[in-house]
Amino acid sequence: MKRVFVDLERCLGCHSCMIACAVEHSLSKELFKAIQETPLPKPRIEVRTTEKGDSFPLQCRHCEEPYCIDACIAGAIRKDPETGLVLSDEKKCVGCWMCVMVCPFGVIRPSLVPDKREKVAIRCDLCQDRETPACVEACPTGALFFGEAEEFKKAAGKEGGKKNALLNSG
């Protein structure tokens, strides 16, 4: 199952991934049109920082046993049995923020439906319409990697980035 992985040592905190994500999830899918949309499109990946000040890109981990699914009062969140992706049906979401309340990673965010005023909880959907997620394509340093866990371990290991090879590795 393909996922987005992060080599933390390569992330410079340039926020290119965030811009690409917000544009990808806008109505127009073009930067200069997207910034004029109301509501302003929000990214589903965010570059945060650790307590030491290091950059730390973060998005939905598509948990094995997600708290958000239990929490959803609208039955809008499902785990795809084939891909393992945890996806929200934004049409079913009523914006109660139960999922925001329980996500231990803080990667589900309150937002508004593009072009409408309706509340909706958003999260990384791994860009279902694209071959490679927009954030990965936009990353100038190769800190973001899209593929199988094994592939990533190999790729990161080769270049000595082992320490932070797997985002969140235990």
């Binding site: 945060r48 598509h62 231990p104 990667v107 985002l167």
Partner: peptide, 23 residues
């Protein structure tokens, strides 16, 4: 999350395998 990641991970998971696939 990044600010408390180390604190959270010191603890055993209450849900053992909440981790993402293959991770």
């Amino acid at each position: 999350y990044p600010k408390v990641r180390d604190l959270l991970e010191e603890k055993e998971g209450l849900r053992e395998s909440i981790s993402m696939q293959g991770d």
